[in-house]
Structure formats: structure tokens, C-alpha cells
Design a protein around this nucleic acid. Sequence first.
RNA 1: GCCGGGGUGGCGUAAUGGUAGCCGCAGCGGUCUUAAAAACCGUAGGACGAAAGUCCGUAUGGGUUCGAAUCCCAUCCCCGGUACCA
Length: 805
Amino acid sequence: MPSEYDHAALEMKWRQRWQGSHIYEPDLLTAPNPYYNLMMFPYPSAEGLHVGNMYAFAGADAHGRFQRMQGHQVFEPMGFDAFGIHSENFALKVNRHPADLIAGNVANFRRQLERLGGQFDWSKTVATTDPRYYRWTQWLFLQLWKGGLAYRARRNVKWCPTDLTVLADEQVMGDGTCERCGTLVVERELEQWFLRISAYTDKLLANLDWLDWSESTKLLQRHWIGRSEGAHIDFPIEGQEPLRVFTTRPDTIFGATFMVLAPNHPRTLSLASPERRAAVADYVAEAARRRIAGVRNDSDQPQGLALGRNARHPLTGAEIPLFTAEYVLSDYGTGAIMAVPAHDQRDHAFATAFELPIIPVVTGESRDGAHSGSGTLINSGPFDGLGAPDPAREMVVAALTEQGLGQRQITYKLRDWGISRQRYWGPPIPAIHCPVHGAVPVPESELPVLLPHIDDFRPLGTGESPLARDPDFYNTTCPVCGGPAKRETDVSDNFLDSAWYYLRYPSADRDDVAFDRALTRRWLPVDTYIGGNEHAVLHLLYSRFIAMALHDLGWLDFDEPFKRFRAHGMITKDGAKMSKSRGNVVVPDEYIERFGADAFRLYLLAMGPFSEGGDFRDTGINGPQRFLNHVFRLLAQVEAPGTAEVEPLELARARNRCIRDVTRDTPELKYNTAIAAMMTFVKHLQAAAPPVPRPAMETLALLLAPFCPHAAEEIWERLGNPYSVHQQPWPTVDQNMLTRDQVVVVISINGRKRDQMDVPPGLSEDELRRRALGSKRIQELLDGSTPTKVFVVPDRQVNLVVPQR
RNA sequence: GCCGGGGUGGCGUAAUGGUAGCCGCAGCGGUCUUAAAAACCGUAGGACGAAAGUCCGUAUGGGUUCGAAUCCCAUCCCCGGUACCA
């Protein structure tokens, strides 16, 4: 039966047709009206794409297909983020080499992605593990280095004493243990490479004000950048350099009764008095152990120790004691604070435990002993009576600045990006260490620095990358002097690979440049980027930083890579995040096999708003499958060509309403309501007498195209139209067809529905009022009384206000 | 703790100041079938009622309004982010 909807045969047929005709591979050099539709490329795991990936790609692909039918040439590339610790750990676990696993995983992912029916341009795919790709990742690093945006510094890394390996932060569990073996993680100081993202904090923050991004994502970035306005204040110390603090509340300085240094502040030991020094050293060492173990001091009893030395209050001249305590962090602000116990809860707790004076300087109610809000200054000498924090903040800082003891200061939580990884599965950092010339860049002509295939890629246990096992790799000569030198053996962070992949796609087949100028100018920045909010801070922030850096270095004309970003929601199973450890990961293959990619896409996208995600329930896939069955049954009832093609008025109206709704909701990614509108239209067609008007079915094929790309092609073809439905313009609404002959107007009394009437649309308020009052039922209910007021909502409601008895 | 999002039938959701529950899933009744599945037709928030209809109902309590799921205040719960950030 030709009316049968045989998804398996039909989907295979159209997949082959698309591949053969290359309709998803625009000519990037000449395509007019370009639209770059980007989605976050996946990490090709051994398990294959999961439902969450499918959801993201189905939704992003629907967007790209919709844009194509709006007249754009759409470039929709796909690639693989194949380097990184996950691949490496998996390889270690199954005792295979990661390079051997990647090929199979990528092939499997590609098979799944093709099966989904995405309009991917496979002629421009990338894999970050391909030397043709990471050559340019290394090039990018060299440009940053040249531009002063890469530098070396010593920094602590997390280290597992059992696995003898450096751990990424995300491999350390909440209780400070190694995710693989459960051992308490320790810290180790290593010399590493950093990228100076801190040079762009202001711009990263400021541009968020105008970027067209999901608000949820912008908020996460703002929070992560963590800008705080305040002041640096120097507290003089007898016979020593003054101690500098950062505070956001300089207005409360008259309430500062003691000072606290982080245990690992560089001056904690040297500021301790000679008789306290031994005790302080013990405390500092103990605090370091606790910090490494991730043990936080949550007890009510604050920990800390007096240093046995005083500083002088810069405005009152009072002697105030110095302490060290773990609640002060070394890597934020200056690592030291002025403590104002009356107006900071942590300082208050500390002051109470150590019996230190508490001087209130701002009026107002306190919570947990401290009032951190606004008020009026008291006990503040010449500043008494001023509003706090403003305007007192400014005036105090001005007074301090005059004495050379303070200045306005802005502090950020965002730190520079450490990219060194003492692991194997990443691009080698292109640097050479010369005993004479220090760290020297690898000449660009010698890129890529190939990652050698070493059999034993287990972590070394020395704090060096496994590449330090391979003398053939690291023994080299200095590019400056030609003398013997050693290559950098660390590899770079996986996030560096993904921070620029969108630039590479259009130029993926080019070996002479990282990204071609003309192609980049035509296609970038990205028109729409769709991905999960789990990458809101790291990936999306790093990508923005790299674009800004490349812009300032003269490589790009733009400095924001993604004009529009939309975060999609998360797919859960039984209300919980899918994860391997929970064992609730849904593999999509069998569903696609059974119901077809089209029904599966429809199911995922109809579940709820795309930005919200939803809970996966396999019983729900019946709905979209039935819907497609209905559509194909209707297709078999379409009037034969050449017969008198008259579209009944009611169906023409339903069709236009459907076009209106789908056209309104689809670009907003409200796929659920767009699909509901199409289902409603199909119900109308089913209820109408056959034959099915041809325009109805043609419209349906066009509207379905972004969501069910295979079925839409099939319907389009069976209607006798030329290939391909995906190259057709989107249908337009005939405004004249949006009218109705009758509307239902509800009549209510005091807001409660009491009657309704069918009236022609567009009646005047007076006419509606007259007709409502004329209703027999309303007259009975009014029982002779007159409404004191009548509210009329044209075409909708008449509300009569009657005094309650 | 703090920041953000959310709480609507058995379930996913729709409606963002004007008929609450569109669309779908599961259910129930029926048709077809030896039977089941599929398919199709019908039904469907709760209570009372033969019906007409009435009352109740959008986490909970209050408020604003002619009218509130929608706006405001308070409380509870769920999800996400973050966590001694001075």
C-alpha cells in the first residue's frame, strides 16, 4: 500500500538522496545570504550519542532547516572534540590506545548523526585530534604567546598520590578525593602555561550587555567573572611594609578592629612575632593540609591564630592586631582583609570567638550579629551622618587616597587560564626549553609538533606528562642557538581545542591557514550557536576570550564569536540527570530503529519548550508516530492533479492559522507549540470530507520540513513536486484567511462565567454590551437589577459588575 | 547560605491580566478480530446532580483588580549554578 508510512525505507532513501546531491554543502566562497548555524560538537565517547546529544542536535538542526527555508544558505557543520582526559581515562580503563579508539567512536557518532537526518556539511568536518587541526591549535598558542597573552608561572595543581597523576579540577570529588581511587588529593606546585584571560575581564563582562544570548547563560558568566568594586587600603605596620587589603566596604573602615591574613599569604610567617613564629608555622602547615584535602571549616568555632603583631588603623591611628585564619583566601583580593565584625558575619563570628572588640559604624538591624546592609555612619569621626555605603564609600576612599593609603580598586573572581596538562592525550604545547634562552616558541614552519604514538601513555608519577618518557620526542635543538634543548612535554587543555573550532569549520579543508580571511569574513561571527548551559562558563568564556585576543592581534574583524546563543534544556530520565553512574542513560539507537528518526525528532521537540528540556518517557513516542501515520493516510486522499482544486474556506483558514503559528513559534525555538499547531491542523483535515485539498498537504510538507526532514521530502515528492522540499521557500500567511465568521464572547457577572454568545467578530463595545444585557439567561440572573459597571473585551468577554447582596 | 529557573489533570505540557487545561501520553467505553495487538470512533480536572446546572480547582496563605495560573507580599517544596570571593 503506498499510503503506508514505512519510516525505515523512506528515511534511508532520502538520506542517500541528500548525500548524492550535496544540498547541504553550500559553496562557502560565493553563497549569498549566508547563515552559520552552529551547535556544540560532541566528545565521541565509546557509548555513542545519548538522548541528550540527539535532543540538542535535533533542535539545532530544525533551526538551521527553518533558516534555510527563510532564504539563507545555511552552513551547518559538525565535528568531534576528541582529545581530553575522558578519552584518555577510558583508554586506560579498557587498556587500549586512545588513538585506536577514536576512529571507531567517530565513525559510530557519524553514523548516528546521519541517521538523525541533520543537514550537516560533512565536507567540512573537523576532529581536534587530527594533526591538520591541532597544528593550528598550536599555531593559536604561538600567536597568543607572541602577543603577550601566554606566560609561564608556578601554580598548585591537584595531585593523586595513589594514581601518581595530576588531576583536573572536575576529577576531584566534593570531599576532596580522587574520582578514580578515592584517595585524598594533595596539591603540588608545578611550572605551567597560562593564558591571560584576565586582560579581557572588563570586555567579557561589558559585551554581555548587548549580546543576544540566553539570559540564563549571561548570568552564569557574570557570576563567574565576579566583578567587585571597592578599594585597596594600606595599613601601616611598625618597622615593616604596610599590609594591603581589598574591601568592597571602605565606608566601614572605622569599624575595623583587627586584620586577617590567609594562612598561605606570603607575609603570614614574616609578620608573626618571633615568639609566635613557631606556632604560626605549625598552623600554616596544618591549614595547608586541610585546604588540600578540601576540608572546610564549617564549625561555629572559627579557626585562627594571632600573629603577635599590630597594624595601625590608617584613619584612627589605633593599634589593631593581626591574625591568620582559613576563612580568608589567598587568591582573592590581596589575600588579607580588614575585619569589620559589626558588619560582616564571618568577621563577627571570629571576633566573638577571639573576644575582639566589635564597633558598629552603620545604623541598621543586624542578622547573626552583623549588619551588612545600608544605613547611616556612626562612630566614624568626621564621616558621621553620611549614608553608607553611599556616598560614604567615595568620601572615605578619597580621604585615604589623599594620604597615600588607599585607592579605588576593582577585583574579579576570574583567574588566568592554566592550560598545561601533564597528560598524554592532547596537543603538545609548542615550546622548547633551552638552557641558554629559556622557553622558546617552536617556529611556525615546524608545526605541527606531532603527538608521538607511545605505547605506555600511563601517567608518569613525577609531575611530568607521559611524553617525558620519550627521548625521541623531547630531545631537540634550540631554534635560537641550535644548541641541545628539550621540548615542552605537557599538552594543552582540551578547552583550547574547542575554543576556536568554529573558526576552523569553514576552512577545514585548508592546510595553508588556520582560517581563511575571505571565508571568515563571509561566514563569521556565527549567526546562531545552540548548546547546553553546562558550557556556559568555561567553553563559552574561553571562546569569547580567544576571539577577542585574535581580534586584537589582527587576525579577526570581530571580537564576539557568537552573535546569538541559545541554551537548550536538559533531558532527564525519571527526573534525574542522565549519567553513567546512575545507570539511567538512554541510548537513542533502538528508538530511532523502531519509530524512525522523524518520529523521534518530533517526540523530543514536542516534549516541551526547547530551552527547558524534559523527561524522557519512551511511551510518549507513540504520539508522533501516530501523527505521521495520520499524515500519510491523508496524503493518500489528496485530490488527483487536474481535478477542480477547490480548497474549502474553513480548511484554508485552518491552514493559514497553522502557518501563522508555526512561523511565529519556530524561530523562538518553541517547537512544542509549533508541533501542536500542526497536529491541530491535521485534526481539521481528518474531520473534513475527502478529498484532502492539495494546498493543505503541500503546506504541511513545508511546515514539517524542519522537524521531520525525511517524511516531508516523501510527501513533497508524492505530491509531484520537484526535489527538494528543503530548498523551497517557507509558506506565507494570507492575512485575509485569518478572519472568522463567528467568535465566542463570554458573558460573566462579577468575573464568573454565566453565559456565552456566538457573534460576528469586530462588534463595537456598545453592541456587545447591548447583546450581553439582552441574553435571556443573564436577564434572569440579574433579576431586574442594573449592573453598576460593564467591562467589554472586544471579541472575548463582557463582564457585568453587580453589587453583591 | 547566596544567585537563577520552576511548582497547572494520573503524566509531559498550553494559556503570561479576559472561557484554565490547547496538543500529546497513559486511562476508560466501544467498533473490527476466534483472541490479542494495531487501527478506528467516543470519553475524560474534582464534587453534587437524571439533566440543566451549581460549587470547588493552577504548591500554601494573604493582597491588588470588574476580572489573577498570570501582578505584589510572605511561606513551603523541586531543579540548576555557586560556595568562606571580604
